[in-house]
């Protein structure tokens, strides 16, 4: 079967073009508790919630150009919750003064037959991982502290092995394009977490 041609058009989510503003950092396992404590103090007064998710990353390879990547994620803790399909664009190479990484983002809630559907479309699963951790919010800010582990047997989420001895900390906001005040808020929030975790603008391309 031949893969269908991949469009090079930028993907936008309907009429409102949402952007994800992102800051990332990591914290060692032993200092997780103090970080969570701090986050509980800083974030909205909601019962802290933990999560366990399984993410599958699908690729659609064309003849030329970069492969098209989609991320399908499901909650292990809430098996009835809908799947989440996500497209993340390339980070914008905007001005350096912006404090956060900005990239195009399309979020779609999907039914449970999503993997089959993607397979039918010609997508192939590239890799998968399990993320377990805690989620906080402060207004529009979302803070996700998660431990990433790889599945030892493909598709089996019970048998996993942690990827590192640290937790990934992500601070993200979804906002329409051009709202740069958001990144200011993020910076000030990141400042408040400073001694515990340094949240930075990390370009994923540089790490590849």
């Amino acid at each position: 079967m031949e893969a269908p041609p991949v469009t090079v058009m930028p993907v936008t989510g309907g009429t409102i073009n949402m952007m994800e503003y992102l800051l990332q950092g990591s914290v060692l396992d032993q200092s997780l508790d103090s970080l969570l404590h701090r986050l509980r103090g800083l974030c909205d007064n909601i019962e802290p919630e933990s999560f366990a998710d399984h993410e599958l990353v699908y690729l659609l390879k064309g003849r030329q150009g970069n492969p098209f990547i989609l991320r399908a994620r499901r909650s292990l803790a809430h098996p009835t919750a809908p799947w989440h399909l996500r497209y993340l664009g390339q980070p914008e190479v905007g001005d350096k003064s912006r404090h956060a990484l900005v990239r195009n983002c399309v979020d779609v809630a999907a039914s449970h037959s999503l993997p089959d559907f993607l397979n039918e479309m010609g997508f192939r699963m590239d890799h998968e991982f399990v993320a377990k951790g805690h989620i906080f919010r402060k207004g529009a800010l979302k803070v996700v502290v998660s431990k990433l582990s790889r599945a030892l047997v493909p598709g089996n989420t019970d048998n996993t092995e942690p990827l590192s001895l640290s937790y990934l900390v992500e601070l993200s906001v979804l906002a329409p394009a051009g709202q740069d005040t958001v990144s200011e808020d993020m910076r000030s929030f990141a400042e408040q977490l400073k001694p515990l975790v340094h949240l930075e603008k990390i370009d994923p391309k540089r790490l590849m």
């Binding site: 909205d44 999560f51 994620r73 919750a81 989440h84 979020d107 809630a109 989620i135 919010r137």
Partner: peptide
């Protein structure tokens, strides 16, 4: 009403 999304990557 502002329940946490599950999976965690989903928007609020």
């Amino acid at each position: 009403s502002s329940v946490m999304p599950h999976p965690a990557s989903a928007p609020f």
